Amino acid sequence: MIEPKAPHLSNIEMWQSWKEERNIEAKKQLVEQYLPLVDYVTNRMVIGLPKNVSKDDIFSNGVMGLIDAIDKFDYKRGLQFETYASWRIRGAIIDSLRQGDWVPRSVREKAKRIEEAYQHLEQRYLRSVSDAEISDYLQVTPKEFTGMLQEIAVTTVCSLEDPIREEDAETRMSLLVDEKAKNPDHKVHEFFLKESLVKGIERLTEKERTVVSLFYYEELSLSEIAEVMSLSPSRISQLHSKAILRLRGALAKQKDQLMQKS
């Protein structure tokens, strides 16, 4: 993982000094110590973003997320700060990207079309569908479909951390994380959503599953995955996009069904 900078005070002393005494110097040391974490998250998220999106801006928003994490973290609970901070940093970056409306409407519409195509065809055939089948359904050539995937790659990098539905706060990634006990109705919904996610992952091709595993669980960047799998970065980006669109379609369908039953 990331090696934090050596602090002037011990880690626990810095937390105590900031939380108990509101020592600004201690807070500055904490920020400095965990800045490499912001750099790490930024480098993972900047891949695939348009050239007009500044990495410096992404980093700056990540720093704001880190500061927010330091302000809200309860060190007495004995939890891992790096994990908590990573979510806050990513959240701050994603919020800034949403506010900046960095993806053209036409690209979002293409992503939605492909997502719905996967959802419709895989529900019909109960299996993973091929690129040729998706191309036929969308009435585009295989070359045009590949071009669409390249265009929408920017919409899928953060997609597991987006809300399942636009009006929801619950994210797709949150379905993979154990949480404290909730009311029975919520647990039933969560169970079926997790089941849907598992089935969606099972329908991915072997290469798509590998990309998802390396990116979200091993936390490799897309360029690192390209080296591991001996494929070009653009090919890895396409595999990632297809995998995420399949999963988004599966989860959106399940979520709609659950909402109708509520």
Rank of each mutant, 00 (worst) to 15 (best):
K5G: 12
K5F: 08
A6K: 14
P7Q: 10
N11M: 15
M14F: 05
Q16H: 11
Q16V: 15
E20Q: 11
E21P: 14
R22V: 09
I24W: 05
A26R: 02
Q33V: 13
L35P: 06
L35E: 10
P36A: 13
P36M: 06
V38P: 04
Y40R: 13
Y40F: 11
V41T: 12
R44F: 00
I47H: 01
G48V: 07
L49C: 01
N52V: 10
N52W: 01
N52S: 13
D56E: 11
D57I: 08
D57L: 10
F59E: 13
L66T: 01
L66W: 02
F73H: 07
Y75H: 06
K76G: 13
K76S: 09
R77S: 13
R77T: 06
G78M: 00
E82W: 09
T83K: 03
Y84P: 09
A85P: 04
S86W: 00
I89T: 05
R90C: 05
A92N: 08
I93T: 05
D95N: 14
L97P: 03
R98A: 08
R105F: 07
R105M: 14
S106G: 12
E122R: 10
Q123H: 10
Y125M: 15
L126E: 08
R127S: 15
S128K: 05
S130K: 02
A132I: 13
I134V: 07
I134G: 06
D136C: 09
D136S: 15
Y137L: 15
Q139F: 04
T141G: 10
T141P: 02
P142A: 05
K143M: 15
E144F: 11
F145A: 13
T146Y: 09
T146I: 12
M148P: 10
M148R: 12
V154C: 11
V154D: 09
T155C: 07
T156D: 01
L160I: 09
P163M: 10
P163C: 09
P163G: 04
I164R: 00
D168G: 05
E170R: 07
E170H: 03
T171M: 02
M173W: 00
M173E: 01
L175V: 04
L176P: 02
L176W: 04
V177Y: 02
V177N: 06
D178N: 10
D178K: 08
K180W: 03
A181P: 13
K187W: 03
V188H: 00
H189R: 15
E190G: 13
F191R: 13
L193R: 02
L193Y: 02
K194W: 00
K194Y: 01
E195G: 14
I201S: 01
L204V: 03
T205F: 04
E206H: 11
K207M: 09
K207S: 14
E208W: 00
R209G: 01
T210R: 07
L214W: 04
Y216Q: 00
Y216N: 08
E219Y: 01
L220E: 03
S221Y: 03
S221A: 06
E224F: 08
E224N: 06
E227R: 09
V228K: 04
S232I: 12
S232M: 07
P233E: 07
S234D: 11
S234M: 08
S237Y: 02
S237Q: 08
S241Y: 00
S241H: 00
K242W: 02
A243G: 05
L245R: 04
R246P: 06
K253Y: 01
Q254R: 07
D256K: 08
Q257I: 12
M259Q: 12
M259G: 13
M259A: 15
K261C: 13
K261L: 13
